[in-house]
């Protein structure tokens, strides 16, 4: 008689499978999942949750990545088998063929604005720190922009490497120092030599004779122009007094 009841009680002693609670926490977005991916930039650890990619780092080991994530982002982290299409999505994102969603919770509104703006810099182009500052409505906060970019939790994905100093110096890079930054920019098709030669002579903008429009030297609209048809300017006033107006696409100055 009683055996059924004893049996039933044993049924209640079953344990949930290993890692179950972590998976649940990841599913509701309290904890993030992560995996290691082979990319054009080499192996990168990438963390994500239901809101999007939350972190990426070229850490030496999984343990190093986990430590950094817990300290910096402050959430739980679980290593998982990545969804089958994620590797391809990451590849596309890094090659500029796709726009992924990002989870920037936990960052200050200012940092979020800086990173969102940075996402708008197209592949193959660069912008000065001051440009980001002006575009997000804090023209004086140039150094703060530098700090926000230095602490970018998702480098490569959010292209902080496309923001450089006006004097042509590449500037620091959290994702592997100035050399790595120069390497990624070259990979994306930026003519660093030309850019730096111009910057060293103090020339920040290029104008096109026929259109009377001036751009940042990496702007897409300058690519079809022959070198002898360019005029170069030191600053906005010089360009404007020569009768040029700012490009509406790369927005070197307020139109």
């Amino acid at each position: 008689m009683a055996t059924v009841m004893i049996d039933l009680k044993r049924l209640g002693d079953v344990k949930a499978p290993a890692g179950f609670s972590d998976r649940v926490l990841a599913q509701v977005g309290i904890a993030d999942s992560y995996a290691k991916f082979e990319t054009v930039l080499g192996p990168v650890y990438v963390a994500w949750n239901h809101l999007g990619v939350s972190a990426a780092m070229r850490s030496k080991s999984a343990a190093e990545f986990e430590d950094w994530f817990r300290k910096d982002v402050g959430r739980q982290l679980t290593r998982v088998e990545p969804p089958h299409d994620l590797a391809a999505k990451i590849e596309d994102q890094l090659e500029g063929k796709r726009r992924m969603r990002f989870d920037l919770r936990g960052l200050t509104p200012f940092s979020q604005a800086v990173l969102r703006k940075t996402l708008e810099v197209p592949r193959g182009q660069v912008r000065p720190y001051g440009w980001i500052a002006r575009e997000i409505g804090h023209p004086a906060a140039v150094r703060a922009v530098g700090t926000a970019l230095a602490n970018n939790p998702i480098p490569y994905f959010i292209p902080c490497h496309r923001v450089i100093r006006t004097d042509g110096v590449i500037g620091n890079y959290g994702g592997g120092g100035p050399e790595a930054k120069a390497k990624i920019l070259t990979l994306e098709g930026v003519q660093l030599k030309r850019l730096q030669t111009l910057a060293r002579s103090g020339l920040r903008y290029e104008g096109v004779r026929s259109t009377k429009i001036f751009c940042f030297p990496t702007c897409y609209h300058g690519r079809r122009v022959r070198e002898e048809n360019f005029v170069f300017f030191h600053d906005e006033n010089e360009a404007r007094s020569a009768g040029y107006r700012p490009c509406k696409d790369c927005r070197p100055a307020v139109a």
């Binding site: 209640g12 002693d13 079953v14 344990k15 499978p17 179950f20 609670s21 649940v24 509701v28 309290i30």
Partner: peptide
Amino acid sequence: VFERLVRDNQNRIYA
């Protein structure tokens, strides 16, 4: 609260 809820009850709910 939720984290504790999951860790405390996961076996029970799975069972």
